[in-house]
């Protein structure tokens, strides 16, 4: 059921009269479509997210949620100081987080370290994701962005995390953003494309919804909140709005798109709140690493500590968990 969105058979979105295939025919049609999406009331969205945040996940549900969360982690290092050594250490942890904990979903690195990561996780089932497209600002030419993507794919990346041009988006040039995504998607080949909206720079929830639809219309396999370099990063309401977007997009087109909150998710509690959002907004179909990821680094150890607390009944200490 993938990739049927843009085949042009007049799939209708209920709020629109244009078929989705024609939406990006011009800047004007794209703008009309995105501005025709229902608005988002910030206070209402915040409250819904906060209420879901009060769900009490205990005992067996908590154990299950922790393992699910671990399996959804995109274990990430995106520092200027990253080295092959640092990346190898992280990959080791990704493949075998500790005890009988499941492996994580993917590791996420800069393009020049993709080859190192691919080598380190080979055969494990852990995917290699690479940020690309002049990450994190995206302020370069399309040519550079495409070749950045090609470099990462050639080095063995399974997944590409691109950034959108927020400047173009905020100035209303939606078509430019759309065309860049289409071009990067083409450069991805078989690699999955995650489109980072950098919601912290989009400022309004209306923009988050519009950017989500824009990315999905352009062919994103995943929509991702943030680079992790801008605050606020992944907040619960932003994830909620993106989950609503993928839910509604599938209703309209039949195509399922994944969601990846990234940045600022540090504790087990945060991770479980996100899972609750998935559960009660998009539902079961998204509760797998194939369709939901958590972009994080320090989160993994907290999940492991909580996991051990559940197993032993004692509170865990950081000395017993590796710093990679």
């Amino acid at each position: 059921m993938e990739d049927t969105a843009l085949v042009g058979d007049a799939v209708m979105v209920s709020t629109m009269t244009t078929s989705l295939a024609d939406v990006a025919a011009s800047g004007a049609t794209l703008r009309a479509f995105l501005h025709g999406l229902p608005g988002v009331d910030r206070v209402g969205a915040d409250q819904r997210a906060a209420t879901l945040g009060t769900r009490s996940i205990k005992t067996t549900a908590k154990a299950k949620a922790i393992d699910l969360a671990i399996s959804m982690v995109d274990l990430t290092t995106l520092e200027g100081a990253d080295t092959a050594g640092k990346v190898r250490a992280m990959c080791t942890k990704a493949v075998r987080p500790g005890g009988d904990a499941p492996k994580v979903a993917a590791v996420c690195v800069y393009p020049d370290l993709v080859a190192v990561a691919a080598e380190a996780v080979r055969g494990s089932g852990v995917k290699v994701a690479s940020v690309a497209t002049a990450f994190p600002s995206g302020r370069s030419s399309l040519e550079v962005k495409v070749s950045d993507t090609a470099l990462a794919v050639a080095a063995g990346a399974d997944e590409i995390d691109m950034v959108i041009d927020r400047g173009a988006f905020l100035s209303g040039d939606y078509l430019k953003v759309f065309e860049e995504i289409v071009a990067v998607k083409a450069a991805c080949g078989d690699a999955h494309l995650k489109v980072i909206l950098e919601t912290g720079e989009l400022a309004t929830y209306d923009n988050v919804r519009r950017a989500s639809w824009l990315a999905m219309l352009a062919g994103a396999d995943f929509i991702k909140t943030s680079t992790g370099k801008v605050s606020p990063a992944a907040t619960l309401p932003v994830t909620l709005i993106m989950l609503e977007a993928v839910r509604d997009f599938r209703d309209a087109t039949g195509r399922q798109v994944g969601v990846k909150p990234a940045g600022g998710i540090r504790t087990t509690k945060d991770a479980i709140k996100h899972l609750v959002l998935v559960n009660e907004t998009a539902g079961d179909d998204w509760l797998t690493p194939e369709w939901f990821r958590l972009g994080a680094s320090s989160l993994l150890n907290d999940l492991l500590m909580q996991r051990q607390k559940l197993a032993t009944g004692r509170y865990a200490g950081p000395d017993y968990f590796t710093l990679d």
Binding site: I57, K58, A61, K62, K64, A65, L68, V276, L287
Partner: peptide
Amino acid sequence: MAIFEYAPA
């Protein structure tokens, strides 16, 4: 069975 069943709390 749902994937994510909340235990009684």
